[in-house]
Design a binder for these strands. Sequence first.
RNA 1: GCGGGGAUGGCCCAGUGGUACGGCGGCAGCCUGCUAAGCUGUUUCUCUAUGAGAGCGAGGGUUCGAAUCCCUCUCCCCGCGCCA
Length: 442
Amino acid sequence: MIDVKLLREHKELFYDSCRKRFMEPASLDRFFALDEAWRQKLKAVNDLKHHKNEISIRIADLVKSRSDASDLKKDVRELGESIEKLETELSSIDKERNEVVRSIPNLVHESVPVCKGDENNAVVRYIGNAVVHEDDVKYFKESTPDGSLFTITKNRAVSHVDLLEKLGLIDMARAGKAAGARFYYLKNRLVKLEMALMNYAVDFLSERGFTVVEPPFMLNYASMNAVTDLETFKDALYKIEGEDLYLIATAEHPIGAMLKDEILEESELPLRLAGISPCFRKEAGAHGKDTKGIFRVHQFNKIEQFVFCKPEHSWDFLEELLKNAEDFCSSLGIAYRVVNICSGELSVLNAKKYDIEAWFPAQGKFREVVSASNNTDYQGRSLNIRYRSKNGNQIVNTLNSTEVATTRMLVAITENFQQQDNGGISIPKALVPYTGFDFISS
RNA sequence: GCGGGGAUGGCCCAGUGGUACGGCGGCAGCCUGCUAAGCUGUUUCUCUAUGAGAGCGAGGGUUCGAAUCCCUCUCCCCGCGCCA
């Protein structure tokens, strides 16, 4: 959540941020109305309580000296009733105000392009040498900076669904029968390839100073509500029936919640954590999108980068996390572009977000494979994670970024590394030490 | 799942109905050539702040008054059961 003190003292920052997000500032107006009512009510309640405490102390004296206190007791009982009534009103105002505060989005960073729609995201850079079908050259050039390196081909790459089915590496039909749409069975060498991706990513981040963590795959309501904006995400999260448990949609959730309500030493920061977990998503709003194959699924594995740091370092860390993910893509030989997500498409938590979009030659498109966000102090405040400093306890900043989401990267590899002559898939060199083979054939 | 024990400020810990004791650590100041020691103050949250309110795992209840008594729940420790 946002800093309520900052909101009171610099309301213009928040109205400006709302405008950048193309949101009505209704929640801000509502907050100020409720806050005013709350303060008045609080003052009244505190005055009554003060009075009550004073009388209680007098009663204590009377009781100690064995005198009669029944008149005073009657007064206090009546006071108690007034207090109870006011407190009920106060807590209902407080509850609504807190809900309103939680709906106020993070401040948008000044470097974020102000506009609506993914098509207006700013292209930051393009890296690699994409193989582009001749029909897609126009789109490719429009989607990348001038002078970007690419290779034109006349042969359209086969879709991952067709190729993987043909090679006996996935079974979508039976997954549909057993579990439903957007589930999959991976088979044979594709399983090994996925494990190789995960092992490689874990080693990659370990070498860059990350502590590898396998977290709980479910969280309780309090943790989930603190680590993410549950109102927005409840349609994306699976709830366990009859239990206070939600399946995680990313390791970001349990890693963030890991330090909930803790006070860290300044010397412990920054903390670089690499979470490895399955991710469960309802994809409720994605009807009709990417319905075939394993590009958009209800369950996938992901290695996630997460950083807890001091506020003055978080913008450097956003670049570091992005670099880690970029280097990983590059090392696999996947061409990609980096986009700076525009203000209208940011989540409530984000101050700024970069996506890495890999080149998918069969689709003839750049598609999201990585998302790197700086949530500044927004998530840290909801989680109540602080660190000791000379100026008192301060809220940590949190950042997260995909390192690799396996299913999307398996699709990228399948589309980019398929062999036109023999219909097989070659394995990116960096992964061969992990797979133990360098080719998948029929 | 069953039985027993526990949860108090950043940490440790006292507290059997009268408004949370003491220690450690941190911070500030004093004192000594420096350092250490010592001494003094301070230490959580909220508010319209020379003041007041809240806070003893969470939520209810009894009471003028609850860390303390009662009920429900959570987590941790010990033992039993079950178990990859």
